[in-house]
């Protein structure tokens, strides 16, 4: 039984990891389209990705849109979360529900809505349009992460700071903010990824003017199945992997430095 479970587990992990394992070798492939196993290896498609404006513009668009979305989302969600977690007011549960709404409504429904609504406002095919739509989609996950953090925050710490002579503003800067910093960073990261990864709404409203990277990849796979897609996937995978191990590496080196100095 034990052995059966172990093999089943391994098989499931392999099945889940397979796309990643296939995408990495394909990015180094010499083939003209996506093909596995690759007939030969070279770095030509990497060169193409980093030089061809057809790929560079969508990359820049995606970075701009994701950064702006992150800033706008945080500017809206941070005060809203403090209000919803710490205070009682009329209409609080309705406000809570509205914060979570974009998560419950299918993206395709939202996309169709934005297409006609932003069309009327002249926001289709513009950066601003995509930023506004992505902000709306990023609110629920950011709110979830942040409110969990804020609920776990011991308000006695703020009382202690006040009793020790800190004004409300000083208490926020010296105590509340530094303690919530990890939660803020993680929720901001979620907002960024949500926007960078979003495809459905982007296909409907980003158009030529503000074409995002996922949209460009989608167009490419429909037309020529360009192996540059595998390059981008590999690079994104690498970025996420680095992001995951970076904190551990950072802690490890700090410990080494601390040991050296002792």
């Amino acid at each position: 039984m034990d052995r059966f479970l172990r093999w089943t587990g391994t098989a499931i992990v392999l099945f889940i990891a397979a796309p990643l394992l296939i995408v990495v070798p394909m990015s180094f492939s010499t083939s003209a389209s996506l093909q596995f196993p690759p007939p030969g290896y070279w770095l030509g498609y990497y060169a193409q990705y980093f030089t061809d404006p057809v790929w560079l513009w969508p990359t820049a668009n995606s970075l701009i849109i994701a950064t702006a979305t992150t800033i706008l989302t945080m500017a809206l969600v941070v005060p809203a979360t403090f209000a919803l977690v710490r205070h009682k007011f009329w209409g609080k549960s309705a406000a809570n529900l509205m914060m979570m709404m974009p998560m419950a409504v299918p993206h395709i429904v939202m996309a169709v809505g934005y297409y006609s609504y932003f069309g009327a406002l002249g926001l289709v095919h513009s950066h601003l349009g995509v930023i506004l739509a992505h902000t709306c989609l990023s609110v629920p996950i950011t709110f979830l992460v942040l409110s969990a953090n804020l609920k776990g925050f011991d308000t006695t710490l703020e009382r202690a700071a006040r009793s020790l002579g800190a004004s409300q503003r000083q208490t926020f800067w010296h105590v509340t903010l530094p303690i919530l910093r990890p939660g803020l960073l993680i929720s901001a990261l979620f907002a960024f990824i949500q926007s960078f990864d979003e495809t459905v709404v982007a296909i409907f409203i980003s158009g030529r003017g503000a074409e995002t990277l996922p949209r460009r990849m989608f167009d490419s796979i429909r037309q020529e199945a360009d192996p540059v897609i595998a390059v981008i996937s590999t690079l994104l995978f690498g970025a996420v992997f680095l992001g995951l191990i970076a904190p551990h590496a950072w802690r490890f080196t700090r410990r080494l430095i601390k040991k050296d100095s002792q």
């Binding site: 009382r159 202690a160 006040r162 009793s163 020790l164």
Partner: peptide, 8 residues
């Protein structure tokens, strides 16, 4: 509270 000079 911060103006009272009371330790808690």
């Amino acid at each position: 509270p911060q103006e009272r000079n009371i330790g808690i």
